[in-house]
C-alpha cells in the first residue's frame, strides 16, 4: 500500500461528506448482511463481497454526472448500490427471487439497470473492459458528452483483451475511464506473484493513455482523481487510467479460506486505513456531525438493509415459466 498522499483535497461540504458516509456504510452493512444470508444458505453460488473497497466506488460516483455509464466485474454489489439501484432488488437477486433485478436469473454477478446506466455485472475476468470501451464508443458516436467508468481489478489487468481495449480506446479517443481497483490479490495470488511490474497506472503508457495512482481508502482522494479523469474524457482527450489502491477485507468469494495472507495484515488495514472510519473522523473532528447523528444514520441504514433482506427472503422464487423467457428479444 502506497503511503497516503497528501494531495490537495477538493472543497467538500458537510452534506457531501455525510452522503459519502451514508453510501459507504450502506455498502458495508449490505455486504455484511449478504454474508450472513450466504451462511444461512439463502444465497448460493459465488458471492464476492466489496467490504473494504467502498471508498472507490463512492468516490467515483461523486465525480459522475447523470447519464454517465458504469460497468464492472462480478464484485458488483457496491457499484449497484452506489449508483442508486434498489438494495431490495439487489438482495433479492442474491437470493434468486423474482423480485431481484434480473428476476433471479442473473445472480450475484449479473445485474443491470438501464435507468441507472449500470451495464453489469460480468463474470469473465477482463471481459467488461472492451465492453466498457464499447459503451464509450456509442457515446462518442452519439456525441452526447457522456463518460463510462470501466472497473476491473489487478487480476484482470493481466488479461490480453484489456490491452486491445486500451489500444482502440486511445486510437479512437473514447471517453472511458479505466478504473483499476487494485485490492492487491487476484483471487489468492498476491500482486507481486502475478504481475511483472506493479505500477498498474503506467500500463497505458505504451498506448499514450495517462494514468495515476490513487489512495483508494480515502474517498476524497478518489473523488478528486475521478473529477480530473472525467474532465479529461469529457474534453474529448480520450481515455484515462486510475489505479486505485484498495483492500478487500473478506475473501475473494465466500468460499475463500484466505490462507494467502495473514490475519494480522487484514486487521492492520481495518484498524489503520478503514475508509469509513476515515470519513467518520472527518465528520466528527470537523464538527459536521455528532456521535448521535452518526448513530441515527447507522440505525437508518440498518433498517434499509434489514428491509432489503426481508424482501429478499419473502419475494417468491421465479415461476417456472421464467426459465423460457428473455432468451430472445421480440423482433
Amino acid at each position: 500500500m502506497a503511503a497516503r498522499k497528501t494531495t490537495a483535497k477538493p472543497n467538500v461540504s458537510a452534506d457531501e461528506l455525510l452522503a459519502y458516509y451514508k453510501d459507504m456504510l450502506l455498502i458495508r452493512r449490505f455486504e455484511e448482511k449478504a454474508g450472513q444470508l450466504y451462511g444461512m444458505g439463502l444465497i448460493g453460488g459465488f458471492c464476492h463481497l466489496y467490504i473494504g473497497q467502498e471508498a472507490v466506488v463512492v468516490g467515483l460516483e461523486a465525480a459522475a454526472e447523470e447519464g454517465d455509464k458504469r460497468i464492472t466485474s462480478y464484485r458488483d454489489h457496491g457499484h449497484m448500490l452506489a449508483c442508486g439501484m434498489e438494495p431490495g432488488g439487489v438482495m433479492a437477486e442474491l437470493t434468486g427471487r423474482i423480485g431481484g433485478l434480473s428476476k433471479g436469473k442473473g445472480g450475484s454477478m449479473h445485474m443491470f439497470s438501464k435507468e441507472k446506466h449500470f451495464y453489469g455485472g460480468h463474470g469473465i475476468v477482463g471481459a467488461q473492459v472492451p465492453l466498457g470501451a464499447g459503451l464509450a464508443f456509442a457515446d462518442k458516436y452519439k456525441d452526447n458528452g457522456r463518460v463510462t467508468f470501466t472497473y476491473f481489478g489487478d487480476g484482470a489487468a493481466n488479461q490480453g483483451q484489456v490491452y486491445e481495449a486500451f489500444n482502440m480506446a486511445a486510437l479512437w479517443d473514447l471517453p472511458v475511464i479505466f478504473v483499476i481497483e487494485n485490492n492487491q490479490y487476484a483471487m489468492g495470488t498476491a500482486q507481486k506473484r502475478s504481475t511483472s511490474t506493479p505500477e498498474l497506472y503506467t500500463r497505458g503508457e505504451a498506448f499514450g493513455i495517462k494514468g495515476e495512482v490513487v489512495d483508494g481508502m480515502d474517498v476524497l482522494a478518489v473523488k478528486a482523481a475521478g473529477e480530473k479523469a472525467v474532465k479529461h474524457c469529457r474534453a474529448g482527450k480520450g481515455p484515462y487510467i486510475l489505479e486505485i489502491k484498495t483492500y478487500r477485507y473478506r475473501g475473494h468469494s465466500m468460499s475463500d479460506p484466505a490462507k494467502y495472507r495473514t490475519r494480522e495484515e487484514v486487521q492492520k488495514m481495518r484498524e489503520e486505513r478503514d475508509p469509513i472510519d476515515h470519513v467518520r473522523d472527518l465528520l466528527l473532528t470537523g464538527k459536521h456531525a455528532t456521535e448521535d447523528d452518526l448513530k441515527t444514520i447507522d440505525k437508518d441504514i440498518k433498517a434499509v438493509v434489514s428491509a432489503s433482506a426481508d424482501f429478499a427472503r419473502e419475494s417468491p422464487e421465479p415461476p417456472l415459466e421464467e426459465l423460457w423467457t428473455d432468451i430472445y428479444a421480440e423482433v
Binding site: G134, G160, N167
Partner: peptide, 16 residues
C-alpha cells in the same frame, strides 16, 4: 478480434 468484438457488444448495449 477479441477486443473489437467486445467493443461492438458494448456499443450494442449502449444503443447502437
Amino acid at each position: 478480434e477479441h477486443g473489437f468484438a467486445g467493443i461492438g457488444v458494448g456499443a450494442a448495449f449502449g444503443g447502437l
